[in-house]
Design a protein around this nucleic acid. Sequence first.
DNA 1: ATGGCAGCCGTGGGCTGA
Length: 258
Amino acid sequence: MKIATWNVNSLKVRQQHVLDWLQLSQADVLCLQELKLTDDKFPRTDFEAAGYKSWFAGQKTYNGVGILVRDGVSVDEGSVVRNIPGFDDPQQRVIAATINGVRIVSAYFPNGQAVGSEKFAYKMRWLDALHDWLIDEIKAHPKLALLGDYNIAPEDRDVHDPKAWEGQNLVSPEERAQFVRLVGLGLTDSFRQFEQPEKLFTWWDYRMLAFRRNAGLRIDHILLSAELAATCSACEVDKVPRKWEQPSDHAPVIATIG
DNA sequence: ATGGCAGCCGTGGGCTGA
């Protein structure tokens, strides 16, 4: 089974890119972030026509997450959960579902804006809540995959210019400690299970010709529970859609499991 | 040192992203 994640930065603008990439990648499951639309605007029937069923949690203007599942892949309809249970939050950042026996979590982690800001404090609270929820979730579902835009570059090798970024939002010690804490739940960064090219990132700023200069960060991740990591045979970043006209600033990440 | 691009809302330019 191929599972993938992609921050599309507006599904309204990127709908055709998603359809094109599903064709190219043959993903069975695609987790989406930053839909930036309300549920009534989600193009469910367009994805259905392309052979994918969808579950989503959206809102106006910001955030919003979804999961697309190829027809023929079994989804436990009653298993769908929106938001982190017990964490009261108007921001739509999490949706989870049990797909082909695998607990799939599509997550859009808070950006944090700047270390020390109120938004950064929210990011930390949100990460605490995610961590605590996942303790129980992994117990209940030994096969679990946490896919999404983490807004954390875990190590210096995930940063184009570690010196310039040192201590900044997205790479700060506090955020990296939270990433390590998630790994401590028994999760594996599937990207690092395999040999990868140097300086392969998942996000490049729209400004400063950042993509052309490969001035990026690796902030989109697929973490797998031990049981799933043992079956993972590949994890790749697909930079191709970042070269398309009017692209998302993120590239999709795809892993093969089972 | 700063802003630079993109999307949203909604018609100005501010907010947010990463």
